[in-house]
Design a binder for these strands. Structure first.
Lengths: 110, 110
DNA sequence: TTCGTTGTTCGCAAAATTACAAACAATATT
DNA sequence: AATATTGTTTGTAATTTTGCGAACAACGAA
């Protein structure tokens, strides 16, 4: 969601926080792992992997879609989902550089 | 929080989701960046960086502490905070390998 | 002892998240 | 037209998150 278009820090913070928030639930991590392990699959395949109601799965998919990490496409009568490769790379770079930005290693505490 | 002690996938999902959830708010990302840019600092320094009430800052710090990404130490009359280096490295590896686990690049949609 | 400083905790309110069943929509099939 | 299949949307309830002011706790200084 245009997270690479503006380099101002607070924008960056909003962006990485949005990705992180989407990843902030075990079920959504599971869905992302599942999608990352293949080119694409249908809603039903995802639902079969999970022990929760389809309405809940649909809701999680919506959040992941809104975050930009996945995309969906109607393929009547099914709906095909996959990782949004471009945004996936953006997120990957953001998280990596975020964690690499820790400079010193002087322990402060305990 | 013992996120490296068990390699079962659902445990891993819980763990990365917990880190991600802690990072799922712009203010908390800002705090993490601030702490990552130095060895350590006091609560007041963090509060000064942010346009929010101290009670709210304290709350965000508590969540970050609970996630394991930071640690705090009383240094009367102040409280010193810093990145939890060990867990930071764990999180870094988890996120990196998570994003690298995407195998194929065949676009499915749109 | 009485202040002043530094942060945490409490109590509250508004908003968001999570999960589900039931209803619905869109399209094939009979 | 009636049915079956595939998912989304709606409505509802319980829980969590977010944010703040006020109260509180711990300590040093006057």
């Amino acid at each position: 969601m245009d997270c690479n278009k503006n380099s101002e820090r607070y924008i960056d913070n909003e962006c990485i926080a949005r990705f992180a928030k989407a990843m902030g639930h075990p079920t959504r991590i599971e869905i992302l792992r599942f999608l990352a392990s293949m080119d694409s699959c249908y809603f039903g395949d995802i639902h079969n992997e999970l022990p929760i109601a389809k309405a809940t799965v649909s809701q999680h998919l919506k959040e992941l879609k809104d975050s930009g990490l996945i995309q969906g496409e109607i393929e009547t009568p099914k709906v095909k989902y996959c990782i949004h490769s471009e945004n996936w790379e953006i997120a990957k770079k953001m998280f990596c550089s975020f964690f690499e930005s820790k400079k010193s290693n002087g322990e402060c505490c305990g």
